[in-house]
Nucleic acid binder design. Structure first.
Lengths: 115, 115
DNA sequence: CCGTCATTGCACCCATCGGTTCAGTGTCGT
DNA sequence: ACGACACTGAACCGATGGGTGCAATGACGG
């Protein structure tokens, strides 16, 4: 029953890291270039402590890499490229399509050719 | 940059629904066809109450649809096709690649060290 | 050296989560 | 009608999550 999954730990961490809009914002922001904790915290009106925690969650998931540079902690996108997360979703989409092709084709939305 | 996000609420629910290996298993199982709460609970050695909760989480995320049929609750894959979740991840991947192509290449050119 | 600044560690608060038990509720088979 | 069956509602539990404030720590700037 648990066969197709990569490491549950990894997926757990990645998906729960993504399950927060603040953290998704952080990733988007870091897509534009490195930032310090303070720079990340400011637009959210959040304490530095709070932001440090969010960054830590992203870092544990491999989505962000950080490095202390002087007084600042430089945060940037990490090595984890969400391939695992993407692969799992793709797998699920295949399941869904198989269901759709079967007896339920009449049912709901028609698809827009993704994947 | 935030225009790629649908409603945070939706993504929050989808990603946090996926952030649990039991629930990912449920989706995989339902990919093979509808199942009752009991059938879903059994392979996990979980109480019916516990499984009902998991199914509820998936249903709230739109990933599962259920219907009471006699004494049974028939659970099947829902209408939410993870397109939103997929789109967000793709968007992030694009950011990552841009970082790689732009900033990192420049960085490598300048420093010659891995970064 | 001293003050300021960016961050962090710690303790704490409250809400949610994953899971249980127990007592119903409604449905089926006979 | 009766009992077994499949589930559900409520109350509860320990752990985790998102957030705060406060007191270090460590790096600058002068």
């Amino acid at each position: 029953m648990v066969n197709h999954m990569v490491q549950h730990d990894t997926l757990d961490r990645i998906y729960s890291a993504l399950a927060d809009s603040t953290r998704r914002d952080i990733l988007t922001r870091l897509g534009e270039g490195p930032a310090s904790i303070g720079e990340l915290a400011e637009p959210h009106g959040m304490t530095l402590t709070g932001m440090t925690k969010h960054v830590r969650v992203l870092e544990d998931a491999g989505l962000v890499r950080t490095e202390k540079v002087g007084r600042f902690r430089q945060c940037r996108l990490g090595e984890e490229r969400l391939d695992d997360a993407m692969a799992w979703i793709s797998f699920y989409q295949r399941l869904w399509e198989r269901r759709l092709d079967g007896l339920e084709a009449y049912f709901t939305l028609q698809k827009g050719t993704d994947q």
